[in-house]
Structures are given as C-alpha cells and as structure tokens.
Write a protein that binds this DNA or RNA. Structure first.
Lengths: 331, 331
DNA sequence: TTGAAAGCGCTAACAC
DNA sequence: GTGTTAGCGCTTTCAA
C-alpha cells in the first residue's frame, strides 16, 4: 500500500466515490439511512485513500467528544501503574475512550492546572481523577459542566463522585496487628501533605488506630529514603517498629536496617509491588481493581445520563502478613 | 469564583471586553501586535468568565497540533511505568505536550490500530512508540506524514527513528556471567513473539550468547507463571540455571522453586523493580532513562525541523549481580 | 493596533 | 437514500 496521506478529507473520499460529502460521512459513521452498496463502496475508497478522519473537526462539528479525561499521578510508582492499567482495561470493556494526562508531585500545582485545562479544552465528556494531589477546590468549579469521579482518594465535595480506598479501615487493620504483637512505641513514617496527600492521610489513619501506643511521627519529602535516618534514630531510642505509609518507603527502611546491621519490625502500604510475597513485606493490599472498576462504571453511568447525586464510596483491601512485622519481644 | 462555563467562547470574551474576536484571540495567544492595555483587559475578562479555549477548534483552524502522541504498553508492568514516567518528564522539560494511548498485549492488534488512528486522527505532530508490540509495517505508512521515534526496541525500517536498548549486548553480559560460573546446561524462558516482542528478542539474545551451553528453550504466553513448570522439569532433568527474559518471570520462578523446596540459579531482565536489590535478583538494568531522554530529544529536534535521516541507536545498561545467580557447582 | 472575512474538516438537520 | 446547507470555535491573512 502506498503511503497514507493524512491530508485526505471526506471530501476527497466522497468525490472519488462519486457521492456527496454527507453521504460519505454517513457511510463511514454508519449512522442514518444508507444503501448497503454505497456504504461498501465508500468504505473501500476510504481504505484505498488511507483516509483518517480529523478528530478535531469531528469533535467541533459534533459539539463535543465522547472521550473521558484521566488525570493520573506519575506512573513511576507501580501503584499508579497498576491503577492506570486497570482503569484502561475497564474503560476498554465499557467502550470508553480515554485520554490521559499525568501529573507529577508538583507543589505549585502548575501541572495540575495545565493538565486540567488540556482536558477541559478538549471538551471531554467526563473526568476521572486518579491523583490524590489535585485538590477538591480546583475541581469543583467544573463539576457542573462535566461529571467528575475521583478514584482512590476520598472527596470532600458533594458535587464530585468518589470511589476511594477505605484508608481509615486499612490503618486500623495494620494498627491492630501492630498492637497485638506487643509494640508500644513505634515510628510512623509518612509524607507531608504537600508531597503526597495519600501518604499523609495514611499516616494519619495509622496514628488514629494506635491508641495507647507512643508514636514518633516522621514527615518526609518525595525522595524514598527521606526520613529514614530519623526513623532509625527513633529505633535507637526505643521504638520497636517502623510503620510506613508506602511500600517503597518500607523498602528504603529495610535497606537502611540491613545496611546498619539492625533489625526492627516494619510495615508498609500498597501491596502492589511484584514480589511483595518474596520480600515478605507486611502491608495492606489496596483495592486498586475494585476502585478502578467502580470509577469507570460510575463515569460510564453518568455519561449514559444516569444522574445520581454524587456518591462517595470506600473500598476495602486486605492485610498482607509477611515476615517484616515481628513481635515486639523479638528485639 | 462562580462555576465555570465551558460554553464560553472567544466571542463572548471579545464582546465583554469590547473588542473584536480576532483582537481577543491575539490578546489571549500573545501573538501579533497588541496594545498592552487591551491584552490585560481581555485577559482579565477571560479569567472572570472562566474561558477555556476549545482545543478542537484551535487545532482545526491552525491546521494541526503541536502535540506529540505516545503509544505505550500497558503500565501494569513497572518497566513500562518507569518508561512512561521518564518520557513524561523529559517531554515536560522539552516543553512538549504529550497525549498517550495505551496498548495491551493484543494478538490481533486491534488496539494498536485503534490507538494509532486516534493519534493520527488528532493530527499529532509526531509519534513516540514505546511498545515493542507494534510492528514496523503498521507504522511505516505514516512515516512520511509524521516523524516517528521508537523507544526501547530496535526498528528495521529506515524511515523510522529508534532509541533502543542494546539487547544483544545485554544478552552477552548475562550469558558470559552464566558461563563463567560453570553452567553448561540452562533453561531459557521467554515469551513467544506474539505475546511480547521484547521478551522474545531477549531470549534470542541470551541464546546467542550461550555458545557451547546446552539450552532448553521454553516459550511462554502472557501469564507470569507460564512455562515455569516446564522450566522446573528441565531443572530436574539436569539444567543448573533458569534464565528469564524478564524479572517478573524470574520472580515466578523463584516462587515456584521455593514452593518446591528446590534451589537453582536464576537470572532476569529489567532491573527496574523497586526492591531488586533486597530480593537479590541477578538481572540487567535496562537503560530506560537514556532511551527515554534520547527519544524525546529526537522527536523534539524533528519537530524543530532538524531533519536527520532516521537514526537507529542502541543504549547499554548494566549487569546487576545479586544472589540468585549461584555457581553451577552449588547444586 | 484593530476589525472583517474566509475558512479548517466534519456533522446534522432538513429538503429532495 | 442522497444532496444541500449551515454552522461548530478558532486562527489568520488582509485591509483599514
């Protein structure tokens, strides 16, 4: 086949097939009445000419797209990779087209504004927000224009839907276990709110579950081994466990402990990492699949005109018990 | 601020600001001559009205976008997550806008065609292809329309650029080590070509590097523990090492070995997984960053009109020596 | 420095 | 069933 010409328009196809532009469109899109014979001829010509419809023109003329915008946090973290993958899968099954913009951990929020404008500028039919970092206030002004569903994090606004993880419950799961194993002084290691909303909230959830336990809380920045030094110092001072708000951080702690020739109980959060089992991590397996599926199902329903009042749901994962959470006595 | 109206057009902004539509456009885009006073007034009005430019209209009128399309393999695999993340980062630095479509492991290639059409339909200014699965023949027809850069895999066509991994070299790195440790009969575990071009090519590279070694080659499908049974059987029959074309597969093998209470040397490929070090994996750390940066730099150059003849480059990673590759004698 | 006008490629009534 | 027509919202000459 010869090289395609992206410059080929329906006009060209129509002329070549000896029909009018609108007939060609009808044939190509399969809408309206069309003679079977015409349709095949037009399709044949389109294929021969290598016609690729100009989406900008189509969207403009049609007054909007059927596309759903996805705001995603940087997929370097396997948790977001897994979430992304599952959302894509669910969208495919639901026959939704997705366009994705990613957002790093950007304190100033410039990327968020940028990404949001990109999506809104495309006149997406709906918005899926899978980044904890985007504040509710930033989203809310658009809630009346476009249905918005948040995935993986709770949502204060009652104009935005949410399929969140039940982090409070997860925190209690972990905390109960830690207490049951006799720990009475622990380190809680989580990002500050600006770096990662999710990790911050998780650390809070842990703290809430740890009544009666003495807590050294360490806030970290973005770097994975941020705060690890402080955590080890607390261990030296008598803490018997280091509870981390993410598995990546737990790995950093394990690394540091090994390097220092020390031992200490640890827990993490996510449970997504391939190899959690082999590493023996104690962690919470976050219900990525459930939240992703529910989020996509919800946006699909909203697009279909099933207009519920925004619903906020929370999904529960499970505790993964590994070797890293040893009893307090073991020291 | 009141709720934004996505229905707001330049027309509305212009009227409200008391200027013509073209003046408003000029003010907003900062092109052409415009009185400073007018520009600020228009901008002020636009902000007040919550004007979000319709990208479809803009692209159509301007006759194309400045956006670069990225075709990515499903980010569930951390390697693709890392690649994605790095490409996004580099694009941000180079001030390129990216729109991403993802493609699963889809034998029929329907997703590929779909994704490609989406991107081409948007009239992207360039194409970044970070999926081994997309065949050269599928891309080539468009090479004259739009610059195409492949990232992470080699490219037979001389009309498409490539910033690939030097898998032949990587294979030799691993193979040499395996031989040096005395292995004379090994299993090579890699996907069949349809499931993963990359894994298949890697298995080939391993085999090429293993002159004088007896090889049981096992081809697998997509499931991570596919072929693991066959590999263990070969170990029973006398193979002293299992060489895997990806770390995920290596993990599956380690899991199976542990479950069976057996021991055997293993190697993997990727080295991206957080925790490779703690797991003690022996693997090749693939140069994701270098390839991503180079790919983005290349497409940026092409967009700037720096028209080189397509260049095919290969980037080299390094051997990561862990505990999993034991000497042959150890059995 | 600003405005008027001519489309970009496609869709969707509405006639024929 | 098919053709005609009127835009969608924006950019961009070209005059004023």
């Amino acid at each position: 086949m010869a090289d395609r010409q992206l410059g080929v328009t329906v006009e060209d196809v129509a002329r070549e097939a000896g029909v009018s532009r609108s007939t060609a469109t009808r044939a190509l899109r399969g809408h309206g009445r069309i003679a079977e014979e015409t349709r095949t001829r037009v399709e044949e010509v389109a294929a021969r000419l290598g016609y690729v419809p100009n989406l900008a023109a189509a969207d403009l003329a049609a007054g909007g797209t059927g596309v759903v915008g996805l705001m995603l946090r940087d997929a370097a973290n396997p948790v977001y990779g897994a979430l992304f993958s599952r959302i894509e899968l669910a969208a495919r099954d639901a026959d939704l087209d997705l366009v994705t913009v990613t957002i790093g951990a950007d304190p100033a929020g410039a990327q968020q504004v940028q990404g949001l404008r990109r999506l809104l500028g495309m006149r997406v039919a709906g918005l899926l927000v899978a980044t904890g970092g985007v504040e509710s206030a930033r989203l809310e002004p658009f809630a009346s224009e476009v249905p918005i569903v948040r995935i993986g994090r709770d949502e204060p606004s009652d104009r935005i839907h949410a399929e969140a993880y039940d982090e409070a419950w997860h925190g209690r799961l972990l905390a109960d276990r830690v207490r049951a194993l006799g720990h009475r002084r622990v380190v809680v290691l989580g990002a500050d709110a600006a770096t990662s909303y999710g990790e911050h909230a998780r650390a809070d959830a842990l703290v809430d579950g740890l009544e009666g336990v003495r807590i050294d809380r360490v806030a970290t920045g973005a770097a994975p081994d941020d705060g690890v030094g402080a955590a080890l110092a607390a261990v030296d001072a008598g803490a018997t466990a280091v509870l981390c708000a993410s598995d990546t951080r737990q790995l950093a702690v394990l690394r540091a402990l090994a390097a220092a020739g020390r031992a200490c109980a640890t827990t993490g959060w996510d449970g997504i990492l391939p190899g959690v089992d082999l590493l023996g991590l104690t962690t919470v397996r976050v219900p990525v699949e459930a939240a992703a599926d529910a989020g996509v199902a919800r946006i699909a329903a909203l697009l279909d005109g099933v207009v519920d009042a925004p619903i906020h749901r929370r999904w529960r994962g499970e505790l993964l018990v590994g070797r890293t959470l040893t009893p307090a006595e073991d020291r």
